[in-house]
């Protein structure tokens, strides 16, 4: 899901940087120092999740979990993901530095959308089945949107990138199923064991 430096045109890089900065500014305004621990925690869950590789046939795939992050954080997903992506770029070389904005919005916008749409429904239920359904919707929806946006940014570069964009989109379809299943289970568990997490999140920022 990370696009590398040098692959995108300058206009797209600039748009990504501006939109990313606006999102981060909004997220920072919403996030007070009380919320800092949860935000940082989710940033590191994102970071650690990229090391949980699940087998798909002969290959393997790693989780993104932006649906879960959006549910728990809302707008604060922007700064959390910025920090996680920056650390990934610095210490592991995933992605790049000038494309940081583009990579950020590709992952954070779906997270925020999912969060704003679903967290209120999540806050009022403790039923396992409903929680799992909402989780599946959040996880699958966020990853589908991310895959779509990654393919879109590649395709916006010019017609020559179209096949690569299509391939990138198709190759992330298995991930949609897996993320939906994993997020459903995770949300069902968190909603039952620690329901106040989503409830508090929905109350503090709307």
């Amino acid at each position: 899901m990370h696009i590398v430096d040098g692959a995108l045109s300058n206009e797209i890089l600039a748009i990504g940087a501006v939109v990313g900065a606006l999102g981060v500014a909004k997220g920072l305004r919403d996030m007070d120092y009380e919320q800092m621990p949860v935000t940082a925690l989710l940033a590191s869950v994102f970071f650690v999740a990229s090391y949980i590789h699940l087998p798909v046939g002969v290959s393997s795939i790693h989780l993104i979990l932006n649906g879960l992050i959006g549910l728990a954080l809302g707008w604060a997903a922007f700064p959390a993901l910025l920090v996680a992506l920056l650390l990934q770029a610095v210490f592991f070389g995933f992605g790049g530095f000038l494309v940081l904005g583009v990579n950020l919005i590709n992952i954070a916008i779906p997270a925020v959308l999912v969060g704003l749409l679903l967290r209120h429904a999540l806050a009022i239920t403790t039923q396992k089945r409903q929680l799992a359904m909402l989780g599946a919707l959040a996880g699958g929806g966020a990853v589908t949107l991310t895959a779509f946006m990654v393919a879109g940014t590649l395709a916006l570069n010019g017609d020559a990138f179209l096949p690569a964009a299509k391939l990138a989109f198709l190759s992330s379809l298995p991930l949609v199923v897996i993320e939906a299943a994993v997020t459903a289970a995770a949300v069902a568990l968190i909603g039952q064991v620690k329901p106040e997490l989503f409830a508090v999140a929905a109350r503090t920022s709307s």
């Binding site: 869950v45 999740a49 949980i52 699940l54 087998p55 989780l63 979990l65 879960l68 989780g135 897996i178 299943a181 994993v182 997020t183 459903a184 289970a185 995770a186 949300v187 069902a188 568990l189 968190i190 064991v193």
Partner: peptide, 11 residues
């Protein structure tokens, strides 16, 4: 596997 991983992450 996916459910177990989801529980792992939730926990």
């Amino acid at each position: 596997t996916w459910r177990a991983t989801g529980y792992l992450i939730g926990m």
